[in-house]
């Protein structure tokens, strides 16, 4: 009888201690938000363009992480982003439906701008400056090319231009040998079916 009592007591004490440790750990190591969301968000190109059907990159990341949304909806991110997210989530990669266009840049034709500030409000990354009844202009260094400013403009004075290629950003292409091309293609093929 006492043997049973000892066993109950010691196990009970142990369980109590473990419970306290767990309770404390839960408070001390509490993680705010879903870490997966941030990880996916970090892989997205942050254009905030909404082409995925969500109002920005973070909402799409949240949907992928917790609502089981497909990984292939990010258009500007292209295949590389899709593969990275699929790899992170541990799901099958899916083909990207829409080809990513060349990087674009919004440009305000200033003499036609009426200074309505509508594009300024639409810009998700605060890349347009101006004041009411003053010309607006796009900060080329910050524009993500999301096109969200084009539609609200009442006088259609915003053009989307292809981002000029800078000589500083030029990089060497893959050497033009048959072998290098084959090797590269094989790798891409494998990556697609990883």
């Amino acid at each position: 009888m006492t043997g049973l009592l000892y066993a109950l007591l010691s196990l009970g004490t142990f369980a109590l201690l473990a419970g306290i440790v767990l309770a404390v750990a839960q408070k001390v190591f509490y993680v705010e938000g879903d870490p997966m969301v941030d990880k996916i968000d970090a892989l997205l190109p942050q254009t905030q363009c909404g082409q995925c059907g969500y109002p920005g990159c973070k909402p799409y990341a949240t949907a992928v992480a917790s609502e089981g949304e497909e990984v292939n909806h990010c258009v500007p991110g292209g295949e590389r982003t899709m593969l990275a997210i699929a790899d992170l989530m541990g799901v099958e990669p899916k083909a990207v439906e829409q080809e990513a266009a060349a990087p674009m840049l919004a440009f305000v034709r200033e003499d036609e701008c009426i200074g309505c500030t509508l594009c300024i409000k639409a810009c998700p990354v605060d890349a347009i400056i101006g004041a009411p009844k003053q010309y607006h202009t796009v900060l080329a260094d910050h524009c993500t090319g999301c096109e969200l400013c084009v539609e609200p403009c009442p006088v259609d004075c915003i053009d989307m231009l292809v981002k000029p290629e800078l000589i500083e950003h030029w990089s060497w292409p893959l050497p033009e040998t048959r072998r290098s091309r084959l090797g590269h293609e094989r790798r891409e093929h494998h990556a697609g079916h990883a």
Binding site: L44, P45, T47, V125, D126
Partner: peptide
């Protein structure tokens, strides 16, 4: 780094 800067700007906004 461009994506990171854009993210910060969008969060600030």
């Amino acid at each position: 780094s461009f994506a990171e800067a854009s993210r910060l700007r969008s969060e600030a906004r």
